[in-house]
Design a protein around this nucleic acid. Structure first.
Length: 919
RNA sequence: GGGCGGUUAGCUCAGUUGGUUAGAGCGCCUGCCUUACAAGCAGGAUGUCGGGGGUUCGAGUCCCUCACUGCCCACCA
């Protein structure tokens, strides 16, 4: 059956088909391995994208890396599970649906909670799968049968169990604390969800009148400095440093708060710095974290002056109802009118914004739920310090530990409607809280039925932090249904970006270690920390930036849409681009020029396949076929096989060895470049050109030679496809099926064996490199002296007897690749011929030419200078007793050999220069 | 303020524990439609490895210092 492939590779023509095929055939579904698996499973969780998400370059990098590793491990024979899912993404999703409502002129508050949540579910059912569909299109080899959503029933059970357990352990508390509040989202957010931006603001200096015990102004003032004058409405004191001599006389005195009229104390606290502002700090416990701490130390009241939307509330008197920034303006103006505004200074400071909606965050006192995190952090620190979890690149371990060692309690409540509702009930009779795994119907303390469920939901990261345990069935691990957990927990690896190192990675480690430790090992013994970790390795990748190294952002308009690039260049080319640039620790400047190059690479392989199939078909006509049973492993060749066969097989093994090592080290770049170099540089540029000599299926040809050559050709190509397939799954799938001409031994190349190094042939590699050197020198000479491209010319070679023999044996290769009509050996290159010299040989092309003495001379002078330098450097070193006495013998030996080679070439070059006719 | 990176060819980046003459892709120059591939083939040019100092027989690689640059954490009103 003839193989027919179009002349140019068109990825769009094949990719959709294979993407669908992989999903439809469920090729990557990974059953739970038996009790005694042959190889340890490779397990990896997909960092669940938000249901609202669209695939961006960061996802694609992340997924390419995971897919390469998963396919690689799978092909190496490990049961490999890559588990996909999506995250309900509390704030993001709620925002999305709210926006939709706004466009319909509706508000969630009008619909009520239940209807709104139903609306979000509807939205999710409709649009929530978009990003996973995109993943399917990219060929991600995940197990779609295990797909989850973080609000699925079984995951919700885990969330509830985790909350209740922590509460029972006394690690969850509820209280009024200063939290970061987003007035737009109208919810508390965690410290991590606040991003700070440098902001050119002002420092307002305001004088507060000092009053005597009777409340009468003494005529003296204390000037405070603030960046947020509107918060003065909630001032309850002014603090000064006890050692501040400017204010010693004011200790114990009181002030009258302007605009409000409240009398507030002057307190001393050494937290106040002497050299900032005026040395006097207004204290607003309800609206500033430092002031809150100060307020607690001095037992001061807290006056909350803002509502959830950051408008001034009734506590603000005349300013009630104003937005915080309008209030600021008005207050500053009023103070100025009263003559109390001393100065307005420019002041650059950091302002916190909501990570989601970029609204300026308002620190606000409110009632929230927290996790007492230290006990969990302690385990998480130990897990990493004791080496149970390893980071790559290693430097992230420091970042992680630094954060973990300075961790604050985690505010886990959100005033949202979309999310896991906190399983706590408030009793209106005894005012106590009931926390329960089941929906409570009566108060656990007084038994009253007058209970209502907490309205807050949990931080989304609380549920995603539990994923490593919850996706495998925790907490419902009975002896009958714990096979998944036993087989796959801890997972092998986590691949993710540093942007969620604290959000997600750190939380998974804390929660995973905490909860898994209670699950006994399969043999019933106690699970130690080492086996409680959620994953054993973490690979952190960099950011994908645009071609100018700018961060991609919608506002800048420089976002590269992976789907668009994929449509233009093919998924494989984009994947290869990302892989080849993914060196650990460095951001990727995504440049389509690179992708263009890898599309060319795909095309190169495509055409190599066309060439091979063409010959397979020709051979078939001559009654020669390649035995398919010889495919699928690692080719070997007999010692008497032609040089190029021995060489390419040796190269293949060496390449496989390097690629395996590189992937084990997360060096996707090295792995990709090694394959690229092998396929293009060795297989196509040299081997295919040489093997053409053997592929003669004509009547008079030696069929044994041709058949053997064809067999090696196809074997090496088939193995190379397998080597490449984790990187370019589509192209290799297509060509691999074509190799087997419709009768493949497996459903997919992804289910075959990954090549591994099992054979070496240094002699062949050395011999081949001599031949290559000779050919390259002849080509260069031809170019220099202007031999027409098509002309075949004789060459003269001076070399050792043994190399003469070797070159003679392979003269047909030299003749074909360098367009040589005849190889002549000589004891001296004929005078008048331009020659090139290497340590092994001198070579000249026999050709009538215009001698360009000037250019020959300048070339020779340059080369001589270079060699002289090499020799001089080597001599200096070799004559240095320090070097000869201390350097290892191997290095000295190499240096000597190298010096002699340079010297030999130098002598040749000098005589050549001397032989040139005068200018 | 604390911490962590980066600085190597015109551009984007490799360069493993210090060891021969520092590499790749793209771009550039020259010549070729050589029947797998012009998305190709062949040949070629290009680097005081950010500056300075030190350790060493030997430094792109280790140490110190300076400069520039990026990021993370903290959040003195």
């Amino acid at each position: 059956m003839p193989h027919e492939l179009p002349k140019a590779y068109d990825p769009t023509a094949i990719e959709d088909h294979w993407a669908e095929y992989w999903v439809k055939e469920n090729l990557f579904a990974q059953a739970t391995p038996e009790d005694k698996p042959g190889a340890a499973p490779f397990t990896i969780l997909l960092p669940p994208p938000n249901v609202t998400g669209r695939l961006h370059m960061g996802h694609m990098l992340n997924q390419t890396e995971m897919d390469i590793l998963t396919r690689w491990h799978r092909m190496k024979g490990r049961p490999s599970l890559w588990l996909p899912g999506t995250d309900h993404a509390g704030i993001a999703t709620q925002m999305m649906v709210e926006r939709q409502l706004t466009s319909e002129g509706k508000k969630r508050q009008d619909m009520g909670r239940e209807a709104f949540v139903e609306r979000v579910w509807e939205w999710k059912r409709h649009y929530g799968g978009a990003i996973l569909d995109q993943m399917k299109r990219l060929g991600a080899s995940v197990d779609w049968q295990r797909e989850y959503f973080t609000m699925d029933e079984r995951l919700s059970v885990a969330v509830r169990e985790a909350f209740v357990k922590l509460y029972e352990q006394g690690l969850i508390y509820r209280g009024a604390y200063i939290v970061n509040w987003c007035p737009r989202c109208q919810t508390a957010i965690s410290d991590l969800e606040v991003v700070y931006d440098e902001h050119k603001g002002h420092l307002w200096e305001i004088k507060y009148p000092v009053v005597d015990d009777a409340g009468k102004e003494t005529g003296e003032f204390l000037t405070i400095a603030t960046t947020r004058p509107e918060t003065m409405l909630g001032d309850v004191a002014v603090a000064i440093h006890s050692a501040d001599e400017r204010y010693t006389h004011l200790h114990g005195k009181q002030l009258k708060l302007p605009l409000v009229g409240r009398v507030i104390p002057i307190i001393t606290d050494d937290w106040v710095s002497l050299d900032f502002g005026t040395g006097a700090v207004k204290v607003t416990p309800a609206h500033d974290p430092n002031d809150f701490a100060l307020g607690q130390r001095h037992d001061l009241p807290s006056i909350n002056i803002m509502d959830g939307t950051a408008h001034i509330n009734a506590e603000g008197g005349a300013y009630a109802g104003l937005d915080r920034f309008e209030a600021r303006k008005k207050i500053v103006a009023d103070l100025e009118a009263l003559g109390l505004l001393v100065a307005v200074k420019d002041h650059v400071h950091n302002v916190g914004h909501c990570d989601r909606c970029k609204t300026i965050v308002e620190p606000r006192l409110s009632l929230q739920w927290f996790i007492k995190i230290q006990p969990l952090a302690d385990k998480a620190i130990a897990a990493v310090k004791e080496g149970h979890i390893k980071f790559a690149p290693e430097m992230y371990e420091k970042t992680y530990l630094n954060w973990m060692e300075n961790i604050h309690d985690w505010c886990i409540s959100r005033q949202l409607w979309w999310g896991h509702r906190i399983p706590a009930w408030h009793c209106s009779t005894c005012h106590k809280i009931t926390v329960s795994r089941e929906d409570a119907t009566k108060c656990a303390h007084c038994g009253a039925a007058t209970i209502t469920q907490e309205t807050d939901v949990l931080d989304t990261w609380f549920s995603s932090g539990l994923l490593p345990v919850s996706v495998f069935g925790w907490p419902n691990l009975t002896p009958e249904n714990r096979a998944d957990f036993d087989a796959f927990y801890p997972t092998s690896l986590l691949v993710t970006g540093f942007d969620i190192l604290f959000f997600w990675v750190a939380r998974m480690i804390m929660l995973g270690c905490w909860f898994a430790e209670d699950v006994p090992l399969p043999d019933g013994s106690k699970r130690e920390l080492k086996d409680s970790v959620p994953f054993r390795h973490v690979y952190i990748h960099a950011l994908v930036r645009d071609a100018n190294r700018e961060k991609m952002s919608k506002t800048k308009g420089n976002v590269v849409d992976p789907i668009e690039v994929v449509q233009q260049y093919g998924t494989d080319a984009v994947r290869f681009t990302l892989a080849s640039m993914a060196s650990p620790g460095t951001d990727i400047a995504f440049n389509v020029a690179r992708t263009e190059g890898y599309r060319a690479f795909a095309n190169k392989i495509w055409n190599a396949a066309r060439f091979i199939f063409m010959n397979v078909d020709k051979a078939a006509e001559a009654g020669i076929a390649v035995d398919q049973k010889t495919l699928g492993g690692m080719p070997v060749v007999a010692a008497y096989a032609p040089l190029e066969a021995r060489w390419i097989v040796a190269e293949l093994h060496a390449t496989a060895g390097k690629v395996n090592q590189s992937l084990a080290d997360y060096r996707y770049d090295d792995a990709a470049n090694t394959i690229y170099q092998f396929f293009w540089g060795s297989f196509c540029d040299w081997y295919l050109e040489i093997v053409k000599l053997r592929l003669d299926f004509g009547e008079t040809a030696d069929k044994a030679v041709a058949g053997a050559a064809l067999a090696t050709l196809v074997q090496v190509f088939e193995a190379a496809l397998r080597l490449l397939s984790p990187f370019m799954p589509f192209l290799t799938e297509e060509l691999w099926h074509a190799v087997y001409d419709g009768e493949p031994p497996a459903k997919s190349i992804a289910l075959t064996q990954y090549p591994k190094a099992a054979f070496a042939d240094e002699d062949a590699r050395k011999a081949m490199s001599l031949l290559q050197e000779l050919i390259v020198e002849v080509r260069a000479l031809r170019k220099e002296i202007g031999v027409e491209e098509k002309a075949s010319v004789p060459i003269e070679v001076r070399t050792s007897a043994i190399d003469q023999q070797f070159i003679t044996a392979n003269s047909s290769i030299v003749e074909r690749l360098a367009r040589v009509s005849e190889v002549r050996f000589a004891s001296e290159i004929a005078v008048g011929l331009s020659k090139h010299s290497t340590p092994e040989f001198d070579v000249a092309v026999v050709y009538e030419r215009e001698i360009d003495v000037a250019s020959d001379r300048s070339r020779l002078i340059k080369e001589i200078a270079e060699k002289e330098m090499h020799v001089a450097n080597a001599d200096r070193q070799l004559n240095d007793p320090g070097f000869t006495s201390k350097a290892p013998a191997k290095v000295i030996e190499g240096r000597k050999r190298q010096r002699d080679e340079s010297q030999r070439v130098l002598d040749k070059l000098r005589s050549e220069l001397a032989a040139l006719p005068p200018a």
